[in-house]
Design a protein around this nucleic acid. Structure first.
Lengths: 110, 110
DNA sequence: CCCTTACATATAGGATTCTTATATATAAGT
DNA sequence: ACTTATATATAAGAATCCTATATGTAAGGG
């Protein structure tokens, strides 16, 4: 798995990206990130929840409480239009970092 | 310029990478990183110095005090063999992050 | 001669973003 | 009855960056 020091800052991009494919609740979001990267990128829920609250305050995501038929409460997060708008420049900034590191070193992206 | 939150963790890779091309002192190291990335990646010296001290303690770099003919003191950092050995796995881990983010989102690396 | 800019290193204090550990609670499987 | 999976929440701590501040030399312009 990718170490903490290196993956720092990727959580927001990861959350917005997976929410682009449809709403998810927090627990499922963590699994999605892990599976979609084949276990390479992994976040604890203790990291994801505060990040989601912050992103909700910024208006990038909206969390709606749900009560499933079993009476289980959980919050379903969906991407807002403001969040969707944020994705492009955020991707571009990450692409910029990739280019910069490639100019400095020989990081292969195979 | 690339934001703080995103570039976190890149300093060590950047330092090792530019030192691979030859010894440099701290001040020059900051300029090198900035120029070689066309200003995209930039670190303050207040960030670089403590990082260099930490890397020296780990044995990845060695800092030798120099006194130029003007009597100006400065420390010249060079890559040790241990530091050289660290570069490959570090590059690989960054490449892993690139792959992971590409699997999650549509970060172009043009 | 003085002032500003460039060179050069150093540390303190603060922000951000992760971690582990802890807490609570329901549902399902053995 | 016990454990695992589901589900959210917070506290305490580590790591890495920032701005601000400190110190001092060298070079160039007015």
């Amino acid at each position: 798995m990718i170490g903490t020091g290196i993956k720092r800052g990727t959580a927001e991009l990861a959350i917005l990206s997976v929410l682009e494919d449809g709403p998810l609740h927090g627990y499922e979001l963590a699994q999605r990130i892990e599976k979609q990267t084949r276990g390479a990128l992994r976040f604890t829920l203790a990291a994801l929840y505060p990040t989601l609250y912050k992103m909700e305050q910024r208006g990038w995501v909206r969390g709606n409480w749900e009560t499933s038929r079993n009476g289980r409460r959980r919050r379903c997060y969906s991407l807002t239009s403001a969040g969707k708008t944020k994705l492009s420049p955020m991707r571009e900034e990450w692409a910029e970092l990739f280019r910069a590191l490639r100019q400095l070193t020989k990081v292969s992206d195979a």
